[in-house]
Amino acid sequence: MRDSEAESGHGDRPRRRGQGELESQILHVLHRAGRPASAAWVQEHFDGELAYSTVITILTRLHEKRAVTRVRDGRAYLFTPAADGAGLAALRMRRMLDAESDRQAVLASFVTALSADDEQLIRSLLGSDSAAESGS
């Protein structure tokens, strides 16, 4: 197999997940539970094969990001989603923004790279927040 086949996801190697994709998939499984669920339950209901240690690692990361809550259940934890996929993406964006010293430059760069439709959506969301705060 050529290196280009492995890099493109062709050949014997499975496609490599994008950054945050596994977290989103595990969060989706947790949402489907409809109740607090153990790591073993998440592993069992995950579409595909994941090692138990991988599920625990991802759930721990999600807990550190405050995307899930957890409570003790004997020696294990039960996890509950605190955010959906959109909320998880927003947490990532906020964390990246917090890591930069010049917030204005980062936000300005972000806004200027938006499509016209996305820019209008943000304006609409900001406008509705302003209207709600002023009591309109």
Rank of each mutant, 00 (worst) to 15 (best):
M1D: 09
M1A: 15
D3M: 13
E5F: 10
E7S: 11
G9Q: 04
G9R: 05
H10A: 15
G11W: 02
G11C: 03
P14V: 09
R15T: 09
R15G: 02
R16L: 12
R16S: 10
R16D: 02
R17C: 02
G18D: 12
G18H: 07
Q19D: 10
G20V: 06
G20W: 05
G20D: 03
E21H: 05
E21M: 08
S24T: 09
Q25P: 00
Q25E: 15
Q25V: 03
Q25G: 02
I26P: 00
H28Q: 13
L30Q: 00
H31A: 10
H31L: 09
A33Y: 04
G34D: 08
G34M: 12
G34V: 10
R35V: 04
P36C: 09
P36W: 07
P36S: 11
A37M: 05
A37H: 01
S38Y: 08
S38H: 07
A40I: 09
Q43P: 00
E44C: 01
E44M: 04
H45C: 04
H45M: 09
F46I: 06
D47R: 14
G48Y: 10
E49S: 13
E49D: 10
L50F: 03
S53E: 13
T54S: 14
V55M: 02
I56S: 02
T57Q: 12
I58A: 01
L59A: 01
L59R: 01
T60M: 06
T60C: 06
R61H: 09
R61T: 08
L62Q: 02
L62V: 08
H63V: 03
H63G: 07
K65F: 06
K65T: 01
R66F: 07
R66I: 03
T69N: 09
R70P: 00
R70L: 08
V71P: 00
D73I: 03
G74H: 13
G74E: 09
R75K: 13
A76M: 10
Y77W: 15
L78M: 10
F79D: 00
F79L: 04
T80L: 11
A82P: 00
A83Y: 02
A86E: 12
A86M: 08
G87V: 03
G87F: 05
R94G: 02
R94Y: 06
R94I: 06
R94K: 11
R95N: 05
R95S: 12
M96R: 12
D98F: 02
E100H: 13
D102R: 12
D102K: 05
R103S: 13
R103M: 07
A105I: 05
A105W: 04
L107C: 14
A108I: 03
A108N: 13
A108L: 13
F110G: 03
V111K: 04
S115D: 14
A116M: 03
A116C: 02
D117L: 12
D117K: 11
D118G: 02
E119K: 08
E119S: 14
E119F: 14
Q120N: 11
I122L: 15
R123H: 11
R123W: 06
R123Q: 10
R123M: 10
R123V: 07
L125P: 00
L125D: 04
G127D: 07
G127R: 10
S128R: 15
D129Q: 15
D129T: 08
S130D: 09
A132F: 15
S134E: 13
S136N: 13
